[in-house]
């Protein structure tokens, strides 16, 4: 098809669509006025947000204050804050065994440990990897791809691969035994299971954050490094006074995203360890799932209350980080 014909066809179709939109928009503009016309354009997005995010969120708040096993909100008795009271009744908050909902607190502590080590470890490793891959090294493109590939895998596939590696008769134990070592129950010992849950999670996600940091590093003007060089700054000083300050906004994005994702951890670990051994890798989202769905008596109210707590915690973390980001803005 000649180019001119294509352009003519395209502009005809485009004009037809715009005229149709205009037919609808013009009377609305007359009614709303030009100033408020912006609301009309964001309305579709707001509707989707309202129906699929805001409404379920509000419904979740309501469920958190209801009891019983009925599914529909109108059938559920209102119980006020008793679900929250149940979650927060503890003899000693540092000892889950003294709490009425001990598994909730085990899940909370497990999630805290996971978040601290997973986010900390991952951001550090992603930064180091990004710094290395930002240099002109041999096979840079290859290594960038290699680090990013695990991100493309489904969490279930990642978990199954690692399960084959880590189980009693898995690859790692086969290697250890062939080297004369003793078989280790990596997924059946609490400490090992926690360690591997964190490692697997870092392995699966690090490439994504590395890529964001790499983009941040490449956005730093070369002139600044040259200026630092002229001023006699060594490599560490360049990193400390040029790279880090300018990378901070990107770091903040990475921190917020990875933290939210870490708190929401579920599918990968559920397949890898099932939350075990015992409750060693039992995290908050699994608690919500088990309480709300996998028991014969499905306690939607308690599960909703726990998810409200989880949501508020995430909100607080995010606000703190944004605040810190603003304070440290360069």
């Amino acid at each position: 098809m000649p180019k001119n014909m294509f352009n003519t066809l395209f502009s005809t179709v485009y004009s037809a669509i715009m005229e149709t939109v205009g037919l609808l928009a013009e009377p609305i503009q007359r009614w709303l006025g030009t100033q408020r016309m912006g609301y009309f354009f964001v309305l579709p997005n707001m509707l989707i947000f309202g129906v699929f995010i805001l409404f379920p969120m509000l419904l979740n708040f309501y469920y958190a204050m209801t009891g019983g096993t009925q599914l529909f909100p109108q059938d559920r008795p209102f119980v006020g804050l008793s679900n929250f009271e149940r979650l927060f009744t503890c003899g000693d908050f540092l000892n889950p065994n003294t709490c009425v909902e001990d598994r909730f607190w085990r899940a909370v502590f497990n999630t805290i440990v996971f978040v601290v080590f997973q986010v900390g470890g991952m951001v550090l490793l992603a930064l180091i990897t990004a710094l290395i891959l930002n240099r002109k090294i041999v096979g840079r493109g290859f290594f960038r791809s290699v680090f990013f590939y695990p991100v493309l895998l489904s969490p279930v596939v990642v978990a199954l691969i690692w399960k084959w590696i880590l189980q009693r008769d898995g690859l790692l134990n086969a290697l250890i035994v062939s080297l004369g070592g003793e078989r280790t129950l990596f997924l059946l010992n609490s400490n090992w299971a926690t360690f591997w849950a964190i490692v697997v999670s870092i392995w699966a996600q690090m490439g994504f954050y590395m890529l964001i940091l790499l983009a941040g590093l490449q956005a730093i003007p070369k002139e600044l490094y040259e200026a630092a060089d002229i001023d006699g700054a060594n490599s560490w000083q360049s990193f400390q006074y040029v790279t880090m300050p300018l990378l901070m906004p990107t770091m903040l994005v990475v921190l917020v995203l990875s933290l939210i994702r870490a708190v929401q951890v579920f599918d990968q670990i559920f397949v890898l360890t099932g939350g075990g051994p015992g409750t060693s890798t039992f995290y908050m989202v699994q608690y919500i799932y088990v309480t709300g769905f996998s028991n014969q008596i499905q306690q939607f109210g308690l599960a909703s209350a726990a998810s409200v707590v989880l949501g508020l915690t995430l909100l607080v973390f995010t606000l703190i980080q944004l605040r810190l980001g603003r304070t440290n803005a360069y």
Partner: peptide, 9 residues
């Protein structure tokens, strides 16, 4: 241990 201890729920 895999059967009983290896899971949580």
């Amino acid at each position: 241990l895999e059967v009983w201890a290896g899971s949580s729920g």
